[in-house]
Design a protein around this nucleic acid. Structure first.
Length: 354
DNA sequence: AACCCGGGGAT
DNA sequence: ATCCCAGGGTT
């Protein structure tokens, strides 16, 4: 017999009050601050998101400040945090709240869901924490805690798995303190019921946890495996003019790093040498109106930039041009542009002693 | 329903 | 290497 509501929530919240971390967004119920923290923490660890949260509330004390900032500036502050659609949607929502909603966030789950970048999880988090609405959150922590404590082997990322867990979480939530319950179950998953080697012997649920009793803790939750990563081959064309200018392009359309900046890119299906590169139509388009004095390869060994779903084998080609070429961005100003970490790493290495 | 979207930390 | 992280949008 598994643990029943309300014993589950009482035990959980008691644990939380004794063990919760002291985090800045736990000192407020301001929808702007809670919303900002929740967007940043999507698929992102607290330790990684925290410095960005502090940067943002410092740069943008209010939603109006965020709305009035140029998108490029928001992306620059977001640089390095990944999943950049979050930053674009964040900015769009700030403008919507400021311009169309009189600067006031929606105060309930249903209307919060209408905001760009706010899905079921985030709407539930804001509604429960800021407005005391009993909407249960279901994130990676919740899947893990519930699948183990209740011995549920339904895959969390297939079919009606998500719905099944949402229903259970909704049955368990403490309707008098939904925000505390939601944060408690996530904190418990993050700090105690961890993915690997959890300390079940000291767990508050070890008298009732189905997975512990059946020795299935390591098998839960069940998750369908992702497809293997794709390999891609990037050749960045790093222009260096005699007067120390370069060329940056903003990425457009679909795909990774939308709206971030990078050097002109030639993608190939495999690694290429300098002669292959020169014969590629993309390179010929690039060099059409460019007076190239020399081309040299910066890194013989490709830099492998690893994303969740693709590995980018990257080589940087240094292309020297005379003064007054098309290169229009002073090298010293590259740092003003939002660039992928891959580019940032190259820039800091290459130009460190330039 | 399947696929795409980053970067980093833990094991 | 592999897994996972306070998920959401698009197709």
């Amino acid at each position: 017999m598994s643990i029943l509501n309300p014993h589950f929530s009482k035990r959980l919240i008691s644990w939380y009050l004794d063990n919760k971390r002291d985090l800045p967004w736990r000192k407020t119920v301001s929808p702007y601050h809670i919303w900002l923290s929740e967007i940043m923490l999507q698929q992102t660890r607290v330790a990684q998101g925290l410095p960005y949260y502090l940067k943002f509330i410092n740069a943008y004390p209010t939603v109006q400040d965020l709305a009035n900032s140029p998108e490029d500036e928001v992306l620059k502050l977001w640089q390095g945090l990944g999943y950049y659609s979050r930053a674009r949607n964040l900015h769009a929502t700030a403008k919507m709240v400021t311009e169309d909603m009189n600067g006031v966030f929606p105060d309930n789950y249903k209307n919060l869901l209408k905001l760009k970048g706010v899905g079921e999880y985030t709407a539930s988090a804001i509604a429960s924490i800021c407005f005391n609405e009993p909407q249960a959150v279901v994130d990676g922590n919740v899947y893990r805690v519930l699948s183990r404590v209740f011995g549920i082997s339904t895959p969390i990322n297939k079919g009606n798995g998500p719905k099944e867990f949402k229903i259970l979480a909704q049955q368990l939530i403490d309707k008098k303190q939904p925000g505390t319950f939601n944060q408690a179950i996530m904190e418990f998953g993050a700090r105690h019921c961890v993915p690997r080697n959890p300390d079940c012997n000291s767990c508050i649920f070890n008298d009732s946890c189905v997975a512990f009793q059946k020795n299935e803790v390591e098998e839960l939750p069940v998750k369908i495996k992702a497809k293997p990563v794709k390999k891609r081959y990037f050749n960045y064309l790093v222009v260096l003019s005699e007067n120390e200018n370069t060329i940056l392009k903003q990425r457009i359309g679909k795909g990774i790093w939308h709206k971030l900046y990078e050097f002109p890119l030639v993608e190939t299906s495999e690694e290429v040498d300098i002669e292959d590169l020169k014969n590629l139509p993309q390179f010929q388009d690039f060099s059409e109106n460019l007076d190239i004095r020399s081309i040299s390869l910066f890194n013989e060994e490709a830099v492998v930039h690893k994303l969740s779903h693709q590995h980018l084998y990257t080589r940087f080609w240094i292309i020297e041009t005379p003064k007054g070429s098309q290169a229009d961005i002073p090298i010293s100003e590259i740092n003003n542009y939002a660039v992928p970490v891959l580019i940032e790493n190259f820039v800091s290495e290459f130009f460190e002693n330039y």
